[in-house]
Computed example of a mutant assay.
Amino acid sequence: MNLNSGGSARRGRRGARRAPMAEINVTPFVDVMLVLLIIFMVTAPLLVSGVPVELPESSAKPLDQKAEPIDISIDKEGQVFLDSEPVSDGELSARLEQIAGEQDPDNPRQIMLRGDTAISYGEMMKVMGELNRVGLNSVSLLTTAAAAPVTEGSSEEQ
């Protein structure tokens, strides 16, 4: 009798094994995705421009672009950047002449000129004068979008 009762106890333990878990634990996956989302949200605004410039506002519509434009930025200290590289006044003239000599006259490259709101009008005109002197006349002045003005008859005032 002892043998039989011992055998049934073994079978009972064997039959009481845990069943394999068929569910997928997604908590680590969600944690990793949230961390990646935060990283992309923080780094995305930094990738927009290499030179921090506070642009003025405008209600003009954006232009369609075919070729990669040349980006010229002037920061609030008056430092000029050509495609995110700082350039001096003398170096700017030479680099612009080189760009003008390399471009196709039938399809000129667009120049994107960005100037901080803190710079003087003369600093912006100095760069635009150099662009005109070397023959780069397809210049766009970049701004930020302005808020729509409220008219007197609109429902927002009521």
Rank of each mutant, 00 (worst) to 15 (best):
I39S: 08
G90L: 07
Q65W: 01
A67Q: 14
Q65A: 07
I72R: 09
R14M: 08
Q110P: 00
L63G: 09
E77Y: 01
N107P: 00
P149L: 01
E157F: 01
M125R: 15
A44I: 04
F29W: 10
A94L: 05
R133N: 15
G6P: 02
L142I: 15
M128I: 02
S49W: 03
G115Q: 10
V30P: 10
D116P: 07
V51K: 05
I74V: 15
D89I: 01
M33Q: 11
S93G: 08
G15L: 14
D106M: 12
A100I: 04
T151D: 15
G135M: 04
I119N: 10
D75Y: 05
N4L: 13
V32H: 00
I119P: 09
R133D: 14
P105I: 06
M112F: 12
K126M: 13
D104C: 04
L63P: 13
I72C: 09
L36I: 12
G6F: 03
N25E: 11
S140V: 12
A146V: 04
V150N: 08
V48S: 13
K126G: 06
D31Y: 06
E123V: 08
I70P: 00
S88T: 15
V53P: 10
Q79C: 01
G115Y: 04
I24Y: 09
K76Y: 03
L36F: 10
E97I: 00
P69K: 03
V32L: 13
P45F: 03
L96F: 04
V87C: 07
M41K: 02
G12W: 02
A147L: 05
L36E: 06
L113T: 12
A67G: 08
V30T: 13
P28V: 01
Y121C: 00
T143R: 07
R17S: 13
I72E: 11
P69Q: 00
L131H: 05
R114Y: 00
G50K: 08
P86C: 03
Q65Y: 03
N107D: 10
E77H: 09
V139L: 05
I111K: 08
A19T: 13
R11W: 03
S138H: 09
I99E: 13
V32E: 06
Q103V: 03
